[in-house]
Amino acid sequence: MRDMNAIEFENVSFSYEEGGTFAIKNLNFAVEEGEFLAVLGHNGSGKSTLARLSNGLLEADSGVIRVFGEQLTEKNLFDIRKQVGIVFQSPDNQTVASIVEDDIAFGAENIALPREEIGKRIDFALHAVGMEEYRHATVSRLSGGQKQRIAIAGVLAVMPKVLILDESTAMLDPRGRREIIDCVTRLNKEQGITVVLITHFMEEALRASRAIVMNRGEIVMQGAPSDIFERHEELLTYNLTLPLIGRICRDLRAGGMPVTDTLDVDRLAKEIASCVSKQST
């Protein structure tokens, strides 16, 4: 079973109020082990609900959720949570202690690891997010991006196989966002951790190996991020906009410059340069 799915949804529905509108509607989808999946959607499309269902913070009204083949029930909740970690949106509302290492220890303490092991886990987690020198720092003095990296480290200390980022970049400045995206990309590549990145910043989905777009509790598009961005008209109907660079490519082409769709600045510059030099020779 090498290609086991990390998370699997089978006909899952969920609504916040009984008889209310479905936040998740009869959803079928799977996250493959080791992949970097981006989940896109405007505010209220159901993408955050998806995260909370995945580790049992919310209970589905109907349908089956499996984590590494095992069906999520009330009994194995604790074990499932060890495997699926979530980093939330607000940098300020997910730390439990004032000092960095104490906060990271929290999850490891909860799963009752011996002290020496907790120490090792803290080393590992801080190294993984590149914040070794902040071990004894005060959380409130860190920048937003650093706080979120500490939040990631706190989740990593439990050593989950899946890391879900539930709009963890939404409240950060561009530098903080970059820090987080770089960090999870590295975790995915080097540690083989399955990453589910929930975001409404289209640019962030570029690093993902696969992207899905949600709208009204349903998956409406999926594929490689670049393929999804090519279908910009369709994206617009789901209240999503193309990243600016995508729009520039499209408009240049419309103006008669044969550039291909790319989301990479250097590549676009190279293409523009070759068009310009062709013109001048």
Binding site: R52, N55, L57, F78, R81, K82, G85, I86, F88, Q89, S90, D92, N93, Q94, V96, E101, D102, A105, F106, G107, A108, E109, N110, I111, A112, L113, P114, R115, I118, G119, I122, A151, G154, V155, V158
Partner: peptide, 24 residues
């Protein structure tokens, strides 16, 4: 904040005081 923190704690396997270890 309390609600979000509660979720974050639960997601990090907090179940109350039982069976926890202590690092410091």
């Amino acid at each position: 904040r309390a609600e979000e923190l509660g979720d974050a704690m639960e997601a990090r396997c907090y179940t109350g005081g039982k069976k926890r270890t202590k690092y410091k």
